[in-house]
Design a protein around this nucleic acid. Structure first.
Length: 909
RNA sequence: GGACCUAUAGCUCAGCUGGUUAGAGCGCUACGUUGACAUCGUAGAGGUCAGUGGUUCGAAUCCACUUAGGUCCACCA
């Protein structure tokens, strides 16, 4: 066996006992930062140069966090997930690339800086002017913009920092302009009037996702509109925003509504502005709500905009950009919308045109950023036609080229794509990619990748160019290009693009499936046409990570103040503990409730690993192993190791992180520490040199492979121990653990016999421990044990491993027999067909022990009755598989035996 | 209003394609510090698997409905 041989080859004299220098507790603080530096400096986060690696690439794009961002638990979870994948693939021999970056986050960043400048200098962006203001944002970005990336580093994320991208880097800008012009040339970009969400404070359009619906108390005013043909008659409409009546261009009722049948087609005369507007019939009106008639304000309400379109009604825009009324407001022009509401209602009342006023609670759309009420208004914006782009993205999922995990998120993705609306890509901001469209004096626009000079001839018309479009593009117009642009697009021959596109894995949050994920897929198909169709798709797996909730099951958010700061947790418990805890707690697809003390589990596990390694290293000094170990406990733990490698590897291949972490937890703690390490102690201190050497060799092998398997989860502690282990062995480590090959299980075998033998040993040891605990006899007082074992094979096995049992259970002697009577002053426990009499040599209180045995007898009895019933059931015998029936028969025999033993001994007390 | 998710021990959660004496961690109880680890060890207590009905020889597991909680989307004139 190669691993045993490698240890055997060590010159004993040069081995230093480094383990003695390891403190008894794991203290992450001292080791994390230097190790990170070491990794990063070694270049191991970068993929090998082309031609020097395996040629199999594995690429991951980080969802670029906002430059204004601060690491929250969601980031920490997502960073952990990605780093596990990346570190695993790197060790498994892939040329692995994880591209980091940040997003310029147009409105968020502009708002942060604007606020800061105003607080410090009482100046607005208009006071500074566009150029100066942008310079200030860049300054701010240089100073503060890398905070979140530093925080990802402290988590241990192994991104290739040499490829860090910012979505406003010059090459990203080039990609954005190129994409825009490409869409322009394909006729997919158009300019049009559209109702947008207007933030009167920030004075920009905001996207739907930047709006919150806030439940507020309000009123529903019933207004009477006089009929044109008979002003003494009215039609009553109900509204929450009476001031918008000045912009009404119609009234709608339901076509089937008897009450209004006669008035459809007639007109009403709108007070204040004296406009004659028609009454139309429209299906969208709910006859039950309010008066059953609704005013139509196409300029300031999305639903009314639709109705207006259907009935060809004109649009009247009432508002200035700051929310005050413009000249269309008639007598109210120039006043604020709040003031107009009050005055208008009062005047309607005076005119006798105000009806009922209901108190209601309704949702008011509010700007996320400024917290001011959103005013829908019509303005000129740029749009991208989405349907042609959406089709291949739909196909990608349906053909299976793109897979969501958990799969159900695919439905969310499809639902959006199949109902996709055109994308409003212009924003009235300064911070962002300026729209690459220039106009001549006749306002004829042209898109251009290259900057066009003011005064230069317009490429189409030849007339001088007079201005560039003042708006900037939506932030997502750059982030949707992230997978291709970071690799060199639009240069189609860029080495990285050829080598690393398409990527294999994207991990992100559910709420950006449409905003980001779907659009990246669209971009892949739209802008990488030279690839075969499945390869245009930017990532084959989209992993939607859990939502992190607080201990009460509420979403963690800044405004709720219920967040747990991952940096505090890293500070307190260490990055490895934070990572391991998160993964241990996060079953795929299941949201996770988090409280600060949840991180203790990971922390304890790290400490356990640390001390297990210490134990191994303390016992390594100067020893050599010779050949393949022959003892069953060696074969057992190596068999368990083989299974563990298999399970962890396949779990990671399938992105089942929680399963992999749980498997490692059980193996390290329950198998290795609880049983193998304990069993090795008597060998290490005993006289049998060969046995001792085998134990050392096995301990080393298990530790070495375990560190490898754990490395993706807990990179720091494993790397530190890897180093210490090789120091102790006096070996030069073949490589840093971060790049050492993934454990393959070479030379290991699954050994069912050894596993069965171990189970019997565990049963017998368990019996003795139970007796000692329940009779209060000191745990380590040497006692004689007489064990009845009816099964000859088991008896033989236990006989063979008597020394192991004696050492684990602290026995004075062990006698294995069949059918022996209960020795005087002994107590008994039963497990797995073994009846173990522990000779106590003193009078003790058996009450607890008897209760436990009786309880167990009852349980086994119930199971037995169930199993027997099953075997008497003809349906079961006829329909269940033969193997199932056979297993059930065997079970009955075992249960019967166990029950007999238990009952006999309960009666004997 | 639409879609989806969840309900298992005091708490947080596992339990794969139906057959288990229903598991883990924390907490709780008892005992234990002679060389890995008290961030530890050993043992124990604790669950009619939300409710109802159905499918099946057999349901924590599959289906329907009900109840309670949550997330996302849309929308409330």
């Amino acid at each position: 066996m190669p691993w045993a041989a490698s240890i055997a080859a060590l010159p004993a004299a040069i081995v230093r006992s480094n383990a003695m220098e390891l403190s008894t507790r794991y203290t992450p603080k001292d080791i994390e930062a230097p190790l990170y530096e070491k990794w990063n400096a070694s270049g191991c986060f970068q993929p090998p140069a082309e031609g020097e690696g395996s040629g199999k690439t594995f690429t991951v794009m980080i969802p670029p966090p906002n430059v204004t961002g601060v690491l929250h638990m969601g980031h920490a979870l997502n960073g952990t997930v990605q780093d596990i994948v990346v570190r695993h693939r790197r060790k498994a021999g892939f040329d692995t690339l994880w591209v980091p970056g940040t997003d310029h986050a147009g409105i968020a960043t502009q708002a942060v800086v604007e606020k800061k400048i105003f607080a410090e200098e009482k100046k607005t962006r208009d006071d500074l002017g566009r150029e100066e203001f942008l310079r200030r944002i860049w300054d701010w970005k240089e100073e503060h913009g890398n905070m979140i990336l530093r925080q990802f580093k402290s988590l241990g994320c192994s991104c290739d920092w040499t490829r860090t991208k910012f979505t406003m880097d010059p090459d990203m800008s080039l990609a954005v302009r190129t994409a825009f012009v490409d869409l322009w040339q394909k006729g997919l970009v158009y300019r049009g009037a559209r109702l947008v969400n207007w933030d009167c404070v920030l004075q920009t359009a905001v996207s739907d996702d930047e709006i919150e619906y806030v439940s507020r108390k309000g009123k529903l005013w019933h207004l009477r509109y006089p009929m044109t043909d008979d002003p003494s008659k009215h039609i009553v409409v109900a509204t929450t925003r009476p001031e918008t009546m000045l912009g009404d261009t119609g009234v709608a009722v339901h076509p089937d509504d008897e009450r209004y049948r006669d008035v459809v087609g007639k007109t009403v005369r709108l007070p204040f502005v004296d406009r004659e507007i028609p009454i139309v019939a429209d299906d969208s009106v709910d006859p039950e709500y309010g008066s059953g008639a609704v005013k139509i304000t196409p300029g300031h309400d999305p639903a009314d905009y639709e109705r207006g379109q259907r009935h060809g009604l004109p649009i009247v825009n009432l508002l200035e950009k700051d929310g005050s009324l413009n000249e269309n407001g008639g007598p109210f022009a120039g006043k604020s919308r709040e003031a107009v509401r009050k005055e208008l209602v009062a005047q309607m009342d005076e005119m006798g045109l105000l009806g009922e006023v209901e108190d209601i609670t309704h949702n008011v759309s509010t700007s996320d950023r400024s917290k001011s009420p959103i005013e829908p208004l019509v303005s000129e914006q740029w749009f991208v036609k989405m349907q042609p782009l959406a089709e291949p993205a739909i196909g990608a999922l349906k053909k299976g080229d793109l897979q969501f995990r958990p799969e159900r998120w695919g439905k969310v993705y499809l639902h959006w794509l199949e109902n996709v609306q055109d994308w409003c890509i212009s924003r009235q901001l300064w911070w962002g990619h300026r729209i690459p469209v220039w106009y001549d004096e006749d306002d004829v626009g042209v898109a251009s990748v290259d900057e066009l000079e003011i005064g230069a001839p317009h490429p189409k018309t030849g007339k001088p160019i007079v201005r560039q479009d003042p708006d900037v593009l939506d932030t997502w117009a750059s982030s949707w290009l992230f997978p291709i642009a970071t690799l060199g697009w639009p240069d189609k021959d860029a080495a990285d693009l050829r080598r690393f596109y398409p990527t294999q894995f994207l991990s992100t949050a559910q709420e950006i499936i449409y905003l980001w994920v779907a659009r990246m897929v669209m971009a892949g198909y739209a802008f990488m046409p030279e690839l075969d169709e499945p390869d245009r798709n930017p990532f084959s797996t989209c992993y939607i990570h859990a939502t992190v909730l607080d201990a009460k099951g509420k979403r963690m958010s800044k405004s709720a103040g219920n967040g747990i700061d991952p940096l505090d947790m890293i500070e307190q418990y260490g990055a490895d503990a934070v990572r391991y805890s998160l993964v241990l707690l996060t079953k795929e697809g299941q949201d996770v409730r988090l409280a600060p003390d949840r991180f203790e589990q990971g922390s304890r596990f790290c400490n356990k690993v640390w001390n297990a390694a210490r134990f191994v290293m303390m016992n390594l000094a100067g020893e050599r192993a010779t050949g393949a170990p022959e003892r069953f406990e060696d074969r057992w733990i190596l068999s368990r190791l083989a299974r563990t490698i298999e399970e962890v590897s396949s779990a990671l291949d399938e992105y089942r992180f929680n399963d992999a972490a749980t498997t490692m937890y059980r193996f390290v703690w329950n198998d290795f520490c609880d049983w193998y390490v304990e069993l090795s102690k008597h060998r290490l201190t005993g006289d049998d040199e060969a046995s001792s050497r085998d134990a050392r060799a096995t301990l080393t092998r298990v530790l070495r492979d375990s560190l490898g398997l754990l490395h993706p989860f807990t990179p720091y502690i494993t790397e530190a121990l890897w180093e210490a282990l090789h120091d102790t062995l006096g070996e030069e480590a073949p490589a840093m653990l971060a790049v050492a090959p993934w454990p393959t299980g070479e030379g290991l075998a699954i050994d069912d016999a050894a596993e069965a033998e171990m189970r019997s040993v565990q049963d017998l040891v368990g019996c003795v421990r139970q007796v000692r605990a329940l009779t209060m006899v000191a745990e380590r007082k040497p006692l004689p044990v007489v064990a009845n074992v009816a099964n000859e094979g088991t008896r033989g096995v236990l006989q063979q491993h008597a020394d192991a049992v004696r050492s684990l259970a602290f026995l004075e002697s062990l006698e294995l027999t069949e059918g022996a009577e209960r020795p005087p002053s002994s107590a008994v426990a039963v497990a797995g067909g073994i009846e173990a009499y522990v000779v106590l040599g003193e009078e003790v209180d058996f009450a607890k022990l008897r209760d436990v045995l009786a309880g167990r007898a009852e349980k086994v009895g119930k199971a037995l009755v169930g199993a027997e019933k099953k075997l008497q059931n003809e349906g079961f015998l006829a329909k269940a598989g033969a193997d199932v029936v056979e297993a059930e028969r065997e079970r009955v025999v075992e249960l019967q035996h166990e029950k007999d033993l238990l009952e006999r001994n309960v009666a004997g007390f």
